[in-house]
Structure formats: C-alpha cells, structure tokens
C-alpha cells in the first residue's frame, strides 16, 4: 500500500490540480510543520493513495478520498500536497 510511487510515471502536480474521479499517489506534503503534521494525521502521507471525489463550484472546497474516508480541504491546503496521478495500467493493481 505504501510506495505506489514506482507504479506511475506521471509528473508531480499539486493535489488541487486533480480532476474529479482522478486517483493519485502522494509524493510530498508541504507547508509549515504544524500544518504538515495535521495533514499526516488526516491520512495524507507520502505513498498513500488519494482521489478527488468532487469539487465545489467557484473554486470552493474539494472532497478527497484518503485512508478509506472522505475529507474535505480548501484549495489552499490541497495546493500544499504534491501527487503523481496513477497510470491507467497501475489502476488495476492498486488496492
């Protein structure tokens, strides 16, 4: 489950750049130490899979699926997380 990073060759993008339904793997969590720690405890750690469930209109908050639950973040927080989109081929093997 951790280390799916090898399964994808996509470039690193911000979590806020995902489109609805897209799955990705987290490569890094940025921001100051207290924010980073909070994101980790919400389930956003390197190697974890994350997907964008939906996005509110007019650049509102975004709902992500991570660690088997749905968590809503504002764009500013989502921008701090770097991800690689999962290749379609890797989709089949990811749990």
């Amino acid at each position: 489950m951790a280390s799916n990073a090898e399964l994808t060759s996509q470039p690193v993008v911000a979590l806020s750049g995902l489109r609805s339904g897209e799955r990705a793997v987290i490569t890094e969590v940025g921001g100051d130490p207290s924010i980073r720690h909070r994101m980790h405890l919400l389930g956003f750690t390197r190697g974890r899979e994350v997907s964008l469930v939906r996005r509110a209109p007019f650049n509102g908050p975004m709902v992500f699926r991570v660690c088997d639950a749905e968590m809503c973040l504002r764009e500013a927080q989502a921008r701090l997380v770097s991800v690689r989109r999962l290749d379609l081929a890797a989709d089949q093997s990811a749990a």
Binding site: G31, I35, P61, A69, M71, C72, L73
Partner: peptide, 8 residues
C-alpha cells in the same frame, strides 16, 4: 488555521 472537514 488550515480548513478541513470530514464528510461522513
């Protein structure tokens, strides 16, 4: 404060 909210 970072904004986050669970959608149960």
């Amino acid at each position: 404060m970072p904004f986050y909210m669970e959608m149960p």
